[in-house]
């Protein structure tokens, strides 16, 4: 986890990461929206359909299985506008995890899910899909440090 003193430094670090890891960056951010004219499963499967030309059935089965890890398989066919903040976060996280050898970066989790009291659910969500990514980082402001249990923290 990397904590930043202000927004400018955080944005700079994100831009730097985008430049250094264009191939495998799986960014989860409010600035990277879901595609509104696709339903949930297509939003998640799009990366593999596009880059790996995976079959539609295979991709859908995989996505439903992944959603089931969070007991959310019923949202697979929904449009994005029908989801709450937590469900949108999960869809963005799973989409990011579809990148090959993904370096997942969660940009300000409390901006993604504003009603969370602490980061326990975020940490749990990452643990449930730890077989899908190569590495993971959380970017947040230093004043949110108390809301995390993570010990591996660096400050910028």
């Amino acid at each position: 986890m990397i904590l930043f003193k202000d927004e400018n430094r955080l944005d700079e670090a994100l831009s730097d990461l985008k430049e250094r890891h264009p191939e495998n960056l799986g960014l989860v951010s409010t600035d990277i929206p879901l595609i509104s004219n696709l339903n949930v499963w297509l939003n998640i499967a799009l990366i593999r359909l596009y880059h790996l030309s995976e079959s539609r059935l295979q991709a859908k089965r995989r996505v439903v299985g992944l959603l089931n890890r969070f007991q959310k398989r019923e949202i697979a066919g929904l449009r994005i506008s029908a989801l709450d903040h937590w469900e949108r976060y999960l869809v963005k996280l799973l989409r990011a995890a579809m990148v090959q050898d993904a370096l997942i970066v969660i940009d300000r989790p409390f901006r993604l899910v504003p009603d969370l009291p602490d980061a326990e659910l975020i940490e749990n969500s990452l643990n449930r899909i730890d077989d899908l990514y190569f590495s993971c980082r959380i970017f947040d402001y230093s004043w949110n440090q108390d809301r995390y249990r993570i010990k591996d923290v660096s400050e910028s």
Partner: peptide, 19 residues
């Protein structure tokens, strides 16, 4: 549709994932 996608930064999202 395309104008809305552009305004809501959905095209940027595609770009981030190299689509």
């Amino acid at each position: 549709e395309v104008a809305v996608m552009k305004v809501s930064k959905e095209l940027d999202a595609l770009n981030v994932f190299r689509i």
